[in-house]
Write a protein that binds this DNA or RNA. Structure first.
Lengths: 197, 197
DNA sequence: CACGAAGTGTCGGGCAGCTGACAGAAGGGG
DNA sequence: CCCCTTCTGTCAGCTGCCCGACACTTCGTG
């Protein structure tokens, strides 16, 4: 069934006993995990056409992450029982879900690999490029990424100050431009050079 | 089809255009990724009954990681085309693979989360416990984990020296015992306290 | 339009973890 | 049995990143 979510509304929380798969009809959803002290890591940002919540759907276990609507959004949800019932009648649905899982696994293992192998500036450059590709909108000042530096920091597992430090450096060099709650990517190639492993 | 692998033999390498799913009949396989400079991250260690290589199987893309036989092993492999052909006749296979994907996603996102949120000692304690659960053998000196400190370090994305430093500290306190190429877990509860987030 | 909240920009001080280096112990293969 | 390789244990710098703090700007809202 379909229903709207307000901006900032929590769709489900890490640890919840949830078992529904959600699809985004309209809007943006952020997937994150946090610890008791309020520190947070971003796993992903999803947009229209994306699906999430597949882990709990598959094994019926607790939610591994928290999903929050970043803007007013419209979500389509299907519960575990209903999903598996549909699967019986429509086996091709499984293939679709498998494709989704493959994609998700690529993204997540990429995150883990980057975290272990890359220094902060390389990780920042890499995430900027990936997010730019997925959610950036073209603009006079470059490809716009509507994310606060705080959010970027959570994405990398570093502090806001460090993110600011590198962005400032790159701004000097003309690689990016900065606005309140936004980063403008101006020189993709320069950022790509930074991510060289 | 089934075939044996020698200890240390590479099953597939990161970046390869592989498209087969592998199952472990006998032996142990390590899944890792590396950068150009030879640094390496471990993602997982798998044993008999486990399956791996599902990402490339699902989307036909490049291997995200390298798989190496840690000991002499026997693997069962099925190519992409054969797998999807079987899937047509046996739709329940898809459910099995979906369950596997859910499991893998849980593990991988746990890795990414830990890397971002936990300090080195907490990560070390956590991985010791998880690996101990999956691959530890009971022994007079505790639960044995047959892994060099070098390998443990790759698992966490830190240096061998740091791993050694914490293991020494914990050995003093009687929480673990150390041998060449092995860690003996003696006090699970103490290690669990360290992982508290 | 005034105020509070949220975001940016910037600084020092401190420390966790890295680099490089070396010595000793424990296998393993010829 | 001996040599070579692998692994452990340890130390002394160095540095990347964190923490706390504060000023300034922008935006939303009553």
């Amino acid at each position: 069934m379909q229903r709207p979510y307000r901006s900032g509304e929590i769709i489900f929380s890490q640890g919840d006993a949830g078992d529904a798969l959600h699809g985004i009809v309209r809007g943006k959803v952020r997937i994150s995990a946090g610890d008791a002290d309020g520190r947070e890591v971003f796993f992903n940002i999803l947009g229209a056409g994306d699906t999430f919540g597949e882990i709990a759907l598959l094994d019926g276990g607790a939610r591994t992450a928290t999903a929050t609507a970043m803007v007013a959004s419209e979500l389509l949800s299907i519960a575990r029982a209903a999903f598996f019932a549909t699967l019986e009648r429509e086996p091709r649905l499984a293939l679709e879900l498998l494709r989704l899982c493959g994609e998700r696994l690529r993204w997540t293992s990429g995150l883990a690999e980057d975290a272990a192998l890359l220094e902060a500036p390389a990780r920042l450059a890499r995430r900027l490029l990936l997010l730019g590709e997925a959610h950036g909108e073209p603009d006079a000042r470059g490809i716009v990424l509507r994310l606060s530096q705080e959010d970027l920091a959570s994405f990398l597992g570093v502090t806001r100050q460090l993110v600011n430090q590198y962005l400032q450096e790159w701004k000097q060099r003309g690689w990016v431009d900065l606005g309140r709650g936004a980063v403008f990517i101006r020189d993709k190639t320069a950022l790509e050079r930074l991510t060289a492993r």
